[in-house]
Nucleic acid binder design. Structure first.
Lengths: 345, 345
DNA sequence: CTGAAAGCGCTTACAG
DNA sequence: CTGAAAGCGCTTACAG
């Protein structure tokens, strides 16, 4: 590959001048500029980003560590992150933690070694020493979706409180009283919060959330299946299963189908996170939709602000309930909105 | 961040010795080794991968340009690629082309600038000059899923020929005669091949594939919806719609639902690519499943072989038909296999 | 406006 | 076994 020296030779100038032209430095003669540009074109020269990064100590790259690429929620998040970053002149490198703290650390280490300018993370756990060190050492960082309390890092996430209350209200009105939840890992904020909020909402209706109705999942499909089976084996099985994310809802559907149970006739189902498929499942699944694209974009802006020395603010956006048929006939006062489909920008 | 000089000072040796220890060079005294290792530990030193890459001209990084991150097929492909690469000591940087040739070029350029060791691509088009140049210039490259004829690059993909024949056989047996297809872009191999194979299979049954029954999609949901609406508006609408990928099948479901049509009662539906949700849609969708994980892993092995100067072979794996209920009652001779769920490794 | 020089953080022949 | 030195491809004060 042609290097800056080749271009300099071809154009009859020094490497410094080539560099200045390429970086739009003002003090370059028009003549030098055209000769350099011509040389660049004939050689098909592209600056070596590795060398440039070493010299400038900037990579114009953001690291994004997501919990699970197979989760459409994170996949959509990743897409919006990359889109916004690209618009602002940054690339993004994605690391998939697959809900495993060890893999998360692997990717954080890798990203740090590559000297990314900033880190966007949705922690799979309570924060490894490695991640905490990075935060304290001043690596620009932003938490998205999930976060770690007590760390001075902006958090961009959605607040499902109102939506969960709406959900419980909806379930209560349909006559359901025994409500169970498939929770995410207690080490994650979303794992804890969704249970807490659910419990709170139940209490407001005078309902209890017994331990047996809190199943421990890990946000992946297999655990949703396992927990649901356990619920069904209970002497007094729940009337409703609320999955704390879409993949565990998928697992729940697997379990229900395997037992030949009908939704919502035999048991009701609802999920946190809305995905396009929920419109077409049998029955369509009532879900809590997050403004995923907005979260991704806001997280990128906050991170880049931090990188450039500006404040970089936290942001919490509301989630909203989307009622479909998986919990019983929708009340006539809350018609199900039409399906949302994302399109090209 | 601590540099190699800091470690050298701390350990009382030269930077060269630190480097040798870190790279497992044989000629280092045991004493020097322990002192260096201790210094590394106390300083929390991590080598700067950027500097190392500049010097060694290797990044131990693979670029993966996929057509669409929102497509679960590619998401699963990306996951298996990263997994295999990691096992072999490589990182992967993913670029999402979003089915747009311009974005694809953007990512290829970015990846090349970063001096990735090799490129894995599933082209969204017939091959831009940029991509062709890279291939000819000797950038180690492997095509996965889609490919570009006439370029000397290994291809790892699946062959859907037998599965499409099985599908048409299945449809024919169920009495369907007017079969339509939602095709992918003609500029892609999979876009063309799936139509060709489908047409061939129809011919074997004495059936025709009229132009009106070939809808032009782009592998994304929106186009599946649009094409399906057009099919339904035909004076003589098809009895079956075969979507050439899972997202266009999703779009087709949107369109059918919007018109209040029942599947398979009013119209049958089948898709190329199987996704976990197809088990739970109303009705479960008959689909052609690819050995996605195997493709991703094989592609990585082929690419790394090329990088390391070994041959790096092409591979074609068969896809298989998974019969569900979306085309009518399955014949008793081909029972629907149980749902497949991927799990952690 | 321009070039020579230094330096980013590593690795690796080359001497010793 | 070890260190000094060169060099990977850039950028950027510093002189002129």
């Amino acid at each position: 590959m042609a290097s800056i020296k080749d271009v300099a030779a071809e154009a009859g100038v020094s490497a410094a001048t080539v560099s200045r032209v390429l970086n739009d430095h003002p003090s370059v003669s028009a003549d030098a500029r055209t000769r350099v540009l011509a040389a660049v074109a004939t050689l098909g020269y592209r600056p070596n980003a590795v060398a440039r990064s070493l010299r400038t100590d900037q990579t114009h790259t953001l690291g994004l560590v997501i919990s699970d690429v197979l989760n459409p929620y994170f996949t959509e998040l990743a897409r919006s992150v990359e889109e916004e970053a690209r618009a602002l002149g940054y690339s993004v490198i994605i690391g998939n933690a697959d809900e495993r703290p060890d893999l998360q650390d692997h990717h954080i280490r890798n990203l740090l070694d590559r000297r990314i300018d900033g880190l966007l993370v949705s922690p799979t756990d309570g924060g490894s020493p490695l991640m905490l060190d990075a935060a304290h050492a001043g690596t620009p960082m932003v938490f998205v979706d999930r976060w770690i309390p007590g760390v001075d890092v902006p958090v961009v996430r959605s607040d499902g409180r109102a939506a969960v209350r709406d959900l419980v209200e909806h379930l209560h009105r349909l006559g359901h009283r025994r409500l169970a939840i498939i929770a995410g890992p207690a080490a994650t904020t979303t794992g804890r919060e969704r249970v807490d909020v659910f419990r709170e909402a139940l209490r407001a209706h005078g309902l209890d959330l017994p331990d047996a109705y809190v199943g421990q999942g890990d946000f992946q499909a297999r655990s949703g299946r396992r927990v649901t089976e356990r619920f069904l084996d209970l002497p007094d099985p729940p009337e409703v299963v609320f999955a704390a994310d879409n993949l565990m809802a998928l697992g729940a559907l697997d379990a229900l189908r395997a037992r030949g149970m009908r939704v919502p006739g035999d048991i009701a189902l609802a999920a946190f996170d809305d995905v396009p498929w929920f419109v077409h499942t049998d029955p369509p699944v009532t879900a809590i939709a997050q403004p995923t694209g907005d979260l991704g974009r806001a997280a990128v802006r906050a991170l880049i602000a931090r990188i450039e020395g500006r404040p970089g603010e936290s942001l919490t956006l509301p989630a909203r309930l989307v009622i479909r048929r998986s919990c019983g006939e929708p009340s006539s006062t809350s018609p199900s909105p039409p399906p949302v489909r994302r399109s090209k920008p």
